[in-house]
Simulated scan of single mutants.
Amino acid sequence: MTVFVTDGVNFRGACADEAEQLGALALRSKAHWGYSQEQLDAFAVELSFAPEELGPRRVTVAQAGGEILGFYNLDGAPPEGELGNLWLEPARIGAGLGRMLWQHAAGTAREHGFQSLVVTADPNAAGFYRAMGAEPAGSTPSGSIPGRMLPVFRIRLS
């Protein structure tokens, strides 16, 4: 397993036994935006991971001091992939870790031959993706809540 260290944060591939922990982290991160428990329950299915999918989905965790602080995953095959998830522990939102995860994801995507990434974002994260250089690319229906539309962004990596 390759481990990259940036500013005391280690980036490494997720382990199969971390699947449940990552799903819980994603829900805590989603809850940061004030969603109701009913909405969080609806999101839980989409934000859960099977242990065997972590490797193929290129799930990468950021950790420090043995604690997982956030994670992302890259789906698809070059030339265009998808940033399927990017979640942080709520206490880390707004502290620069999201930017570090984004930069690591973009670098990893380039190394794998991706020329662009598509991101289906939580509406509350739209400003973050715009700040990272992603451009609006439409919207798509939520897989969790009927009638809810999610913004889609595209980032060119070349």
Rank of each mutant, 00 (worst) to 15 (best):
L86V: 07
P90L: 11
V5D: 13
R92I: 03
G98V: 01
A109I: 09
A14E: 05
E38W: 08
G84H: 03
R12G: 05
R12Q: 06
G127M: 14
A126S: 09
A126P: 01
F153S: 01
R58P: 08
F49I: 06
E89D: 14
P78V: 04
I145A: 11
S29N: 01
A137D: 11
G23M: 10
H112G: 09
W102N: 01
G70P: 01
A31M: 06
N73L: 04
V118E: 07
E52M: 15
L157A: 02
G8M: 11
V59Y: 02
Q39A: 14
A125V: 00
A50Q: 14
L83A: 00
E20K: 12
L83Y: 02
G8E: 12
G127C: 13
E52L: 15
E53I: 15
L101I: 10
I155E: 00
F128Y: 07
E18Y: 15
F43T: 07
A62F: 03
G113K: 11
F153H: 05
A31W: 08
V152S: 05
L83G: 02
P79Q: 02
L88A: 02
P90I: 12
D122H: 13
T60Q: 08
L86G: 00
G65K: 10
M132W: 06
V119M: 05
L25A: 01
R92M: 06
A14G: 12
S36E: 07
D7N: 09
N124M: 15
Q103T: 08
K30N: 02
D17C: 14
F128E: 03
K30W: 08
D7V: 08
L69P: 00
P51E: 08
L25V: 06
E18L: 15
Q63K: 06
V119H: 02
G113V: 11
P146E: 13
A16G: 13
G81L: 00
A31H: 01
M100K: 13
D75V: 04
T140F: 10
W102R: 00
M100H: 11
Q21F: 10
S116H: 13
F153C: 02
V152C: 03
F11I: 07
G127L: 14
R99K: 14
E46M: 14
